[in-house]
Design a protein around this nucleic acid. Structure first.
Length: 771
DNA sequence: GAGCACTGC
């Protein structure tokens, strides 16, 4: 179909695109509309043909009222598609009109129309995440602009489930007018006008489109969570708002911290306008323990079973800290509950684990209804969800009446002095505890059992968890900011600026990696590294790998390093699991072992029944699948950037050596040297005394090792280690291994010795060749 | 002799 023909036809027939020229308020947008956006829109065109006119014909952008929107929502046809609205739609609509946000729709519109930036505070149950973006749609009419409204979420599951919910509310198939976009999955189409996405995804988009020009309105949800991506986006949006006066911004938050957001987004000297909507939650009765609990997992299990045995109907939500703890607890609760059924005639109890790395299908199971009684009239069944922090915020599960809160979660902590990021089980904040308790009052009055004393709550818990930006290694963030075109990092306006030392560390690290030059400017390598969703050191390693003839292998390894735990080691079968791991072990280290696992996984034997094969070999099928996913994403980027994919032939005796050398090209700052002849190692430059993690396959003899991570538990461990040679360090990272920069000691002596030997060898060679 | 919450076109 010819372009001009389509354009003419659209004006007459597409309701959503109805004669923009006739509307003086839209005239200036007409030109934009004929670029790009119209391409795919014509595909879905026949659908909207039936609607010869729509409610939007009579509305003026940014001048609508809540009444207008309500009339539009009342149908009988869908305002955006022209299709007749379903019965389900009208049923859901009734519920939506009962949400607290609904009563303030006009107030919201007034503020939205008046101000470029708006802070919106809605407590849980206010309906803000689902309703506000829809309020925006009816007034902002992105479909007439060829633009979209985006609503960011810190987590993938939330983006997916909210998008599904809103698609239902708007009576459209998910992925059409309403879609979502997360890593590995873009469920949107050219028709999409409302897109839920992860905050990280929007940040990624900002790197290629610094003005975020595809959007007419950006809604940052759950801003109070202060994820790294949210914090950077907020700083960025302040700048984009200046460059794009047409862009509307809504910051949504759940807590009392609203003033901080208002002040940060001040317009001139005035704080950004604020709209607060009360939540709708039922009262939650809080119980504390009289004495501190020694073993919180054990106490949690006891509490769950007690609730099941004695409390009236209602589902249970238990917060624990990690995957294994959760799986373990689920098994134990299941067993004990069966006993309760047999011995005390308790109702059936279904136990579901919930954590981020769980496959989506299994995550969905938490929404299954509670089991019915064993026999008619018997004691009611209930479900118990054992979850990480993921259930604390975005993911809401209706029907929860009892919350068990041991008061811990795994949190990232960063120590800039020794440049170590680690996960630690730490006490939660008061805000978190309140959030957790609130989960019990979604559908009716509930109870929250805190497994700590009231005194501990009041005196020991901090008010708010520190924002992530203050707890992270910022090398990737700094690289992203550079890529986003932020040159002056020191004056980039962040809500909570990180310590100067942390920034300096990041700049220094990027300089060593040659991602930034001595002036702090992005280098070609830095620009490339920013294209990869990887830590800069790993990105650099991958980019350099063609020089070591092993980019195919490094692609696999990089993918493996960015997914969770590969090796399963269930408490019940540790010995078997270790034996299986031995099958893949490479004497030179864990990186090579992981690579062996991946190759075996992709081999014909495993591929006959990969799930079973993984199970038999105590490997995480999910992790390997995820690695495969990551690998293809990284491969696409490699190809796009013209980085060559190659391998050293497996028969070549340099096959593994090349891989180990390539490891050094990225990990040269994560190197440790054996201390004398003992078991301890010393990290290069930071002089930390560390031990090889007991999970390593590496024999203790290795003089020098590169390590993937530092694990702080009972002792200082380095995990995932591979043996390297001192001469490679000098050869591959001469800038970092400039011997004069090292203080006197074992490491310097050893490097010096290596350098001397190398020089003698060179001299010998030169002498020989002269003869 | 041990433990990865959350995210990334």
């Amino acid at each position: 179909m010819a372009d001009d023909g389509r354009g003419a036809k659209r004006q007459k027939t597409s309701g959503a695109e109805m004669d923009p020229k006739a509307n003086p308020y839209l005239a200036h947008h007409y030109e934009e509309e004929s670029n790009g956006y119209s391409n795919g829109y014509s595909n879905g065109f026949s659908r909207s043909k039936k609607a010869s006119s729509t409610v939007f014909d009579n509305l003026i952008r940014h001048q609508t009222s809540s009444k207008d929107a309500e009339v539009a929502e009342n149908g009988p046809n869908n305002a955006f598609t022209g299709q007749p609205l379903s019965n389900r739609y009208f049923n859901i609509l009734k519920g939506r009109r009962n949400l607290p946000v609904h009563t303030q729709r006009q107030e919201f519109l007034d503020m939205f129309q008046k101000s470029q930036i708006l802070v919106f505070v809605g407590e849980t149950g206010s309906g803000k995440t689902t309703q506000i973006p829809q309020f925006v749609l009816f007034d902002d009419m992105p479909q007439l602009q060829g633009k979209m409204v985006a609503c960011t979420q810190p987590r993938r599951v939330a983006a997916m489930s909210v998008a599904q919910r809103v698609a239902n509310e708007m009576d459209v198939p998910l992925g059409e007018e309403v879609g979502y976009s997360i890593r590995f999955e873009d469920k949107t189409s050219p028709r999409t006008i409302l897109k839920y996405m992860t905050d990280g995804m929007l940040l990624r988009e900002a790197m290629t489109d610094n003005n975020l020009s595809r959007y007419s309105c950006l809604i940052l949800d759950e801003a109070h969570e202060r994820t790294l991506a949210t914090d950077i986006l907020m700083g960025l949006l302040k700048e984009v708002a200046r460059r794009r006066p047409d862009l509307k911004i809504v910051i949504m938050s759940a807590t009392l911290d609203a003033q901080k957001f208002q002040k940060y987004f001040k317009i001139g000297e005035d704080p950004a306008p604020l709209l607060a909507v009360p939540g709708r939650t039922h009262p939650v009765e809080i119980f504390y323990t009289a004495e501190p609990e020694r073993d919180y997992v054990e106490a949690a299990l006891r509490t769950v079973l007690q609730i099941h045995a004695t409390e009236p109907e209602g589902d249970i939500l238990l917060f624990l800290t990690g995957e294994e703890e959760i799986e373990d607890a689920c098994r134990k609760i299941g067993l004990e509950a069966d006993e309760l059924v047999r011995e005390a005639d308790a109702g059936p109890l279904k136990v579901y684990p919930l954590y981020g790395t769980l496959p989506p299908a299994q995550q969905q199971r938490i929404f299954d209804p509670a089991p019915p009684p064993h026999k008619p009239g018997g004691r009611p069944g209930r479900k118990c969800i054992v979850s990480t922090n993921i259930a604390e915020t975005s993911l809401t599960i209706d029907g929860i009446v009892y919350v068990v809160d041991p008061g811990f979660s795994k949190q990232k902590v960063y120590n800039p002095r020794i440049r170590v990021e680690s996960l630690l089980v730490s006490p939660i904040s008061k805000a978190s505890a309140q959030q957790r308790a609130g989960r019990a009052g979604r559908t009716r009055p509930g109870k929250c059992f805190r497994l700590y004393t009231e005194g501990a709550f009041k005196k020991e818990l901090i008010e708010q968890t520190y924002p992530e930006i203050l707890r992270s290694n910022l090398s990737m963030t700094v690289l992203q900011l550079k890529k986003l075109g932020i040159d002056d990092l020191v004056h980039f306006d962040l809500m909570d600026p990180p310590a100067p030392e942390t920034l300096m560390r990041a700049l220094e690290e990027l300089n060593y990696l040659a991602c930034l030059d001595d002036e702090g400017e992005l280098t070609h390598l830095g620009r490339l590294a920013a294209e990869f969703p990887l830590d800069p050191s790993i990105g650099v390693m991958l980019i350099s790998s063609p020089e070591f003839y092993c980019s195919n292998e490094m692609l696999s390894l990089t993918a493996l390093l960015s997914v969770p735990q590969l090796f399963n080691r269930p408490a019940s079968a540790r010995k078997r699991a270790d034996e299986m791991k031995e099958l893949f072990a490479h004497p030179d280290g864990d990186h090579l072992t992981m690579l062996n696992v991946y190759h075996a996984f992709k081999g014909p034997e495993a591929q006959r029944d990969p799930k079973q094969w993984c199970h038999d070999h105590f490997l995480s099928y999910r992790a390997l699948q995820q690695a495969d996913n990551v690998r293809s994403q990284l491969k696409r980027i490699m190809e796009r950037e013209d980085l060559e994919l190659m391998s050293t032939p497996f028969e070549d005796k340099k096959y593994y050596e090349n891989i180990r050398r390539a490891l050094v090209s990225g990990f040269f700052m994560q190197v440790a040297k054996r201390d004398g002849s003992g078991k301890t190692y010393i990290t290069v430059k930071d002089d930390q005394s560390v031990l090889l993690h007991p999970s390593t396959v590496l024999a203790q003899e290795a003089e020098w090792v590169v390590y993937n991570e530092f694990v702080l538990t009972t002792k200082n461990y380095i995990r995932t280690v591979t043996a390297v040679k001192a001469e490679w360090l000098l050869d591959i990272a001469p800038m970092y291994y400039n011997i004069e920069d090292f203080k006197q000691g074992e490491i310097r002596r050893s490097l010096q010795k290596t350098a001397d030997t190398l020089r003698r060898k060179e001299a010998l060679k030169a002498g020989k060749s002269r003869k």
